[in-house]
Design a binder for these strands. Structure first.
Lengths: 210, 210
DNA sequence: TGGGGTATCATAACAACGTGACGAAAAGAG
DNA sequence: CTCTTTTCGTCACGTTGTTATGATACCCCA
């Protein structure tokens, strides 16, 4: 049996996501309400609950969208003969561009600053693609012998941590205005250069225990 | 003229802050309500509004407390003859210990993941002390000639960004379990080692513009 | 010693929020 | 044309942050 045809299709879903991102970018995360985003696209709260299940579901969808964009951007980045320079460029031209261009998606998807129940589990799948793209870049650096004895996974984790921290600091307006890209490039280049330094442990590392 | 003596003194303020931190650490930021924290310490919501003005005021006070602890910890850290090793230790033993030991304070004060109106302005003063402590450490590294041509401010910003990113990643459970401290030390040592590498710009930096 | 005056208290009321439940509506099946 | 099924719009419920409303406790002064 078939019932009433649904008029809350994926087009309204896309409109809802777009409206939600626009609202958050303009006025912050705290003003986003289900009623408001529903009114924004001319529908009712029922559409949100039919399409996303809950407000959290809408935020998870936004986070997944963030990782889609990030993964696509990193996959589209061209490569040159310098794997280390390519990696730095991936951080500056891909990660930074995304974080600054879509601050709300960055906060929801990457930082997971939802203040809501666990969404990490539903976003790990979405983040896998983007992180895999990063790891292929790091693998090229390792094949060039510029990663020391580090694991690709560890180096990728460390590189991503620096990118995420830089983005958080810049989004808070804590970087010298106009110098943001230079600081990004300076920091990422220093980290990647440090990867290639053979003696990477400081003297106290052997005597410190967990 | 004097009126009724206030019985919501700073002792109840401390109790409220402690209860709020305990609640957030236990159940997350989203379950924190003014009524709940008031009931927790056996008083009413009026105490919160008399002492902190609003829920945001209470969170700002929590953030300020975070920076107090962080600044005190970094000031108490001993120094040795190796400024670079001292800096790495400050990240691992001070910043990481604080972030992992007080995740809610880290999220509120450092990450400012409040989902609420601007609190950055009220926290910059509180953060100044802790950041100054970091800069004195970085200054020693620069005086040892291990900072390249970097500014102390820039290097401090980059070092802090890596610490903040590492803490965010670890708090999300994305680091290999049991390997967290090693990864922290590995990443921070790489960044500091990269600071000392004379050629810190990759080949594409000169041809990229904002 | 006893009444204002005043500042602070506890409480209730208000608007907005997320969300589940209810009846109405719309389309195919017989 | 009627029935069944599915989805829709709307409303009610509990909870949230915050603000008015009396009530209360203390000091000053006569």
């Amino acid at each position: 049996m078939v019932g009433r045809p649904r008029e809350h299709d994926e087009r309204t879903a896309a409109a809802l996501l777009e409206a939600a991102e626009r609202t958050i970018d303009a006025a912050g995360l705290e003003v986003l309400s289900v009623r408001r985003v529903a009114d924004e696209v001319g529908t009712t709260t029922r559409a949100v609950y039919s399409l996303f299940g809950s407000k959290n579901g809408l935020l998870v969808a936004l986070g997944a969208r963030a990782f889609e964009m990030l993964g696509a951007a990193i996959a589209a980045q061209a490569t040159t003969g310098s794997p280390d320079a390519d990696l730095v460029d991936a951080g500056v031209a891909v990660f930074r561009r995304f974080a600054i261009g879509h601050p709300s998606l960055f906060r929801i998807g990457v930082q997971q600053t939802l203040g809501s129940p666990r969404v990490a589990g539903q976003l790990t799948n979405a983040s896998a693609g983007a992180f895999a793209g990063l790891e292929t870049r790091v693998t090229r650096v390792k094949e060039a012998g510029l990663l020391g004895r580090r694991t690709v996974r560890d180096a990728s984790c460390e590189f991503h941590s620096l990118c995420e921290g830089l983005a958080a600091v810049e989004l808070r307006g804590l970087m010298t205005p106009g110098e943001e890209e230079r600081i990004w490039r300076d920091a990422l280049a220093a980290l990647v250069a440090g990867f290639a330094v053979p003696v990477l442990q400081t003297h106290r590392s052997a005597t410190t225990k967990e």
